[in-house]
Write a protein that binds this DNA or RNA. Structure first.
Lengths: 242, 242
DNA sequence: GCTCGTCTGTGCCCTTGCGCACAGAGTGTA
DNA sequence: TACACTCTGTGCGCAAGGGCACAGACGAGC
């Protein structure tokens, strides 16, 4: 039987929360609480994964780095997901890195335990595979959005994605940092953020963003944000899953 | 026991070829041979999938269409893969469409048979999940490439990807068609293709491309092409898989 | 206070690629 | 042969965004 405290802590990750109680109890011994600092690297490109992480208050970006050093983000993972799908997909490594963009906590589960449970429990497997599809949706939308939409819209999308995964209206990150995610120049982010600030959607000051008008951001963002959100809801939280 | 003819036909798809013989025999009754015309739609965005397809000589593009009608490709699938991962991931639909970009054949397998076999056979499941990771790699690389690389390089990448999946140096597709995949204007493709033609890599004439200098294309493409190729080889064909 | 380092704002020039318009060049068909 | 249609080439103006340089603004530490 899970203590109320443990249950409360563990279900701050929505994937874990979606699991049946007896499953959670079985998983608990394999889960370790960890914390990530801003910018901390969970794994490097090509590095063998030793564990997966279920973020609770942290947010993790899947980042690609090109040979010339330019970078772009392919996906963003918070308490709605899990970092390290390659472990149960069977590849064990991926050609991208994972970086914490919001400092905070997560639950860590080592490779063996994960693979064992994946093979053993149908509900666990089903949930993880559905999550994989949600992740694919997010990545493919990023592919299209990166191609077709302006920096300003993509910035809105990124802010909303991050805001969704954080329990606050304040984010701590520099424009330089964001430009690495968006795959653009820092100056372009400055200009775009300036416009969002001018129309009163956000406030920006030295690595400290405040979301002032969330609805306004939702109005300024491209369709990509909603498509991914709706599809994720459908895949993970809608039907009688778990 | 598979007839030599059936075995030969079925293993034109590399995923199927990677399966153990007894598994193939079990699958055979569930497989139907189909053919796709150029431009044929395998499934529409949001449509419930009834089957997966293992292309043999056809090539299928996963295409995203925005509300304003603009389009971009997220992935390209040939005899090295399978169309319809959402079926075993559990989502049953995806927000993109699948379109044949090279006419040709495929093996079709209905949803029930697929799901049954996925649950029953570990080697089948392992192969499909590894393929899923390869697909994720391809899509994420597209996301980054779309953001950071020029039309010309992306055109090279697309030509190489397609060429890899086709047993010929001639491709039948208009520049208009390709521009839909690249998410660019037709005129931009004209210019880029013109340059590739000038330096003797390809020949272009009214919906009829000839790859003249494959090595040259590999020299002109961005790193994205090779990263995906190497990673796919590692995931699917390298180790003792199957 | 002062200084240093970091973060943000801005301006200028340049390239890429889009929007649009239209001209030619093949191809198919009557 | 004539006509219609499709596909490709090209030119021009324009907007977005990259490269670079530098100025200001803020905060931390002394």
């Amino acid at each position: 039987m899970l203590s109320a405290e443990a249950f409360d802590a563990i279900t701050r990750n929505q994937l874990l929360r979606a699991l049946p109680q007896e499953e959670l109890e079985r998983l608990l011994p394999s889960l370790t609480r960890v914390a990530f600092a801003l910018g901390e690297v969970l794994y490097e490109s090509g590095q063998r994964l030793e564990y997966v992480c279920f973020p609770t208050t942290s947010v993790v970006s899947l980042l690609y780095t090109m040979e010339d050093g330019s970078t772009a983000e392919m996906g963003l993972i918070g308490n709605d997901g899990l970092v390290g799908v390659a472990l149960f997909l069977g590849g064990n490594t991926t050609p991208n890195r994972a970086v914490a963009v919001v400092a905070g906590g997560a639950w860590r589960m080592n490779a063996n335990a994960l693979q064992q449970e994946f093979a053993r429990s149908e509900s666990f497997q089903r949930l993880l595979l559905r999550y994989t599809q949600a992740l694919i949706t997010q990545i493919s939308q990023a592919a299209v959005c990166n191609r077709l939409h302006s920096i300003e819209k993509r910035l809105c999308r990124w802010l909303l994605l991050t805001h969704d995964r954080v329990n606050a209206n304040e984010l701590f990150m520099t424009q330089e940092f964001i430009s690495n995610m968006l795959g653009s120049r820092r100056e372009s982010v400055t200009v775009a953020a300036g416009r969002l600030q001018d129309i009163g959607l956000i406030n920006y000051a030295r690595g400290h963003i405040t979301i002032i008008d969330r609805k306004g951001l939702e109005g300024a963002v491209c369709e990509c944000y909603r498509i991914v959100k709706d599809e994720t809801d459908r895949l993970l939280w809608a039907s009688g899953e778990g």
